[in-house]
Design a protein around this nucleic acid. Structure first.
Lengths: 87, 87
DNA sequence: ACCATAGGCAAGTAGGCACTTGCATGTCAA
DNA sequence: TTGACATGCAAGTGCCTACTTGCCTATGGT
């Protein structure tokens, strides 16, 4: 999961899914290019999504030829638990 | 900061500093080798500490020929703020 | 059936990063 | 001052990873 968060593009993907959850690959590609100035290709974004899914930060749901991506911030809880953040 | 967290050895260093704060480079090397089975050399650990310090996750205090390392979990707050963790 | 759309697979490439190696600097004790 | 100790600097090496390229599969509309 930590390696998944290490890439700036993947973090922007999580930002975009936070703002609008359940996007398809193409939706993400266009919106990332528009609002976040991400120039990556479709394949690059797809591979990033695979990494995020492997890290448990993104879940997917298939419907016909569309695949929707949802953010899951659950794994992030482990960070604050591992290194207690004093308030 | 995210790249700093991406390396397993650096995360173990943070673990060790959580358990015992304010260690020197040599202390860390020996304790990491003992308890966490880290086989990295002194120089490797030193470079990791530089990265952690650059990420703001570790602060240092120099006293004579000793340099003490302290964990700072402050930057970790930004994670939960960026991607709200639902409870 | 045909075609466009949405996505997947896999090999190759370039750059970054962790680690080593060797030497240098600085500090303290005797 | 001399030697041992704690740390720092810098170049070189090998691996990992992000990205591209090219082609393939599958779904849905007409």
């Amino acid at each position: 999961m930590f390696k998944a968060l290490a890439d700036p593009t993947r973090r922007v993907i999580l930002d975009e899914l936070t703002e609008r959850d359940g996007q398809t690959l193409f939706e993400l590609c266009t919106r990332l290019a528009m609002k976040h100035e991400v120039t990556s290709s479709r394949q690059a974004i797809s591979q990033h999504l695979d990494v995020l899914e492997g890290a448990g930060l993104v879940t997917t749901r298939r419907d016909g030829r569309y695949k929707f991506h949802y953010i899951d911030t659950g794994p992030l809880r482990a960070i604050a638990q591992r290194w207690p953040v004093q308030t």
